[in-house]
Design a protein around this nucleic acid. Structure first.
Lengths: 131, 131
DNA sequence: CATTCTGTACCAATACTGTGGTACAGTTTG
DNA sequence: CAAACTGTACCACAGTATTGGTACAGAATG
């Protein structure tokens, strides 16, 4: 697993790490039972404090996505998604890739694209969608 | 203009406000010369400190997006986009809306959708795209 | 059993964010 | 001119994020 953190993004590092682990699990890159790199090892790779990694791991444990075994390691804890879900995900990823690349080709910046999506998400989720 | 801030998002409020002003300008909702609400008025509407709004305004001024006139007000300062750009933008917004709503209908959460896009953006912009 | 790995738990220091308050200075309005 | 608006500039305070350090405790390995 390779994680890419951006210290200049203004986003807390431990949250960035959590997001990427979540996404890796959602996309099946990390699966139930997988052993995560140790806190110190990952901290060294990402050039951040071990405390920052520890915080991310603990938060993920609270979410039920990670199981921390003292002395042993950090293990992914997530039910494997069904075939239907996996198919939906694949379609979603393909579609997202297509849109993002087209927008980049149309000279929209990454930040502009983020804002377009963020604005749409805020607009589409102001109230409950599936009552 | 209506701005929606989310104090629980972990994103600094002044940055959220900046993003929304930027987006409003990019989409033409705010145009060159438009007068923004006064610092104190907007602070009251958003129920945040006037210092937070002032910080956002000053940062936007540094970016050249806003012109602060002492005693007068805060004025949008942005070249109006051409017709071609406006057309691109409209198509982009339509497409983004379509994808987001479909994903929401497919039971992806707003956060999952954010991660899908963020992962794609990170992946598509690791190096220069238009050399 | 001893070493070495693992997670866990502190602490002090620094920086950023946001608040609430006060005050000053420029512009507009009546 | 005077009042009421504007941006600007401080301050002290609390909360959070992150770092670097040290240390302890459980598990795996030889």
């Amino acid at each position: 697993m390779i994680f890419r953190l951006n210290p200049a993004s203004g986003h807390p590092l431990y949250l960035q790490l959590m997001e990427q682990v979540r996404h890796a699990v959602e996309t099946g890159v990390l699966q139930d039972g997988d052993l995560m790199p140790s806190i110190r090892t990952l901290a060294e790779e990402l050039v951040i404090s071990h405390n920052t990694v520890a915080k991310a791991y603990m938060e993920l444990q609270h979410e039920g996505l990670l199981e921390l075994r003292h002395g042993s390691g950090a293990y992914i804890s997530a039910p494997r998604s069904g075939k239907a879900r996996a198919a939906k995900l694949l379609k979603a990823q393909t579609r997202v890739r297509s849109v993002v690349e087209d927008l980049l080709d149309d000279d929209f910046s990454a930040d502009e694209i983020r804002r377009l999506f963020e604005a749409q998400l805020i607009h589409s989720t102001v109230s409950v969608r599936k009552p």
